[in-house]
Amino acid sequence: MAPRPRKKRNAGLPANLYTVGKGYYRYRRPDTGTWHGMGNDRAKAVAAANQLNGRLMTGADLVADVMGDSVSLNGFLDYYEAEVLPPRQLAQATLDLYAVRLRQIRAALGAQDIGQITIGMVSTFLDGLTPRASNQARAYLVDVFNYAAAKGLVADNPPEATIPRIDNKTRKRHTVKGVRKIYAEAEPWLQNAIDLALLTAQRREDILAMRFDDIRDGALHVAQHKTRRASDAGWIRLPMTPQLKSLVARCRDEVPSPFLIHRKPERRVASGRHWTQVDNRYLTRAFKAARDAANPYPDWSPAQQPGFHELRALSLHLYKKAGKDGQKLAGHSTRKMTKNYEADHEEVVWTEAVADLDLSNITG
Rank of each mutant, 00 (worst) to 15 (best):
P298K: 06
N295Q: 06
P298N: 11
Q304W: 09
K339Y: 04
L316Y: 01
A294R: 00
L311H: 02
G307T: 12
G323F: 06
E342G: 15
Q327H: 03
T338V: 14
F308N: 01
Y297N: 09
G307P: 00
E342N: 15
P298R: 11
G307K: 00
E310C: 10
K324A: 14
T338A: 14
K324C: 07
L329C: 05
G326T: 08
G331T: 00
G331L: 04
H309I: 03
P298F: 11
K320W: 08
A294Y: 03
Y297F: 13
L311P: 08
S333V: 05
L316Q: 06
Y341F: 04
P306D: 01
Q327I: 09
G323A: 12
A343Q: 10
S301R: 15
K321A: 15
R335L: 00
P306N: 04
Q304A: 15
A330M: 02
L318E: 06
H332S: 09
P302C: 10
G323K: 09
L311S: 12
F308T: 11
P302T: 14
A330Q: 00
Q304S: 13
Y319Q: 05
T338I: 08
A322I: 09
R335C: 00
H317D: 14
A294D: 01
Y341H: 10
Y319D: 05
G307V: 04
L329M: 08
K336S: 02
K339I: 07
A294S: 03
D325I: 08
S301M: 14
H317G: 09
L314M: 14
R335I: 01
K336D: 02
G323R: 09
N295E: 14
A330T: 05
G307Q: 02
A322K: 13
K321T: 15
K321G: 15
A313S: 15
K339A: 14
A303S: 14
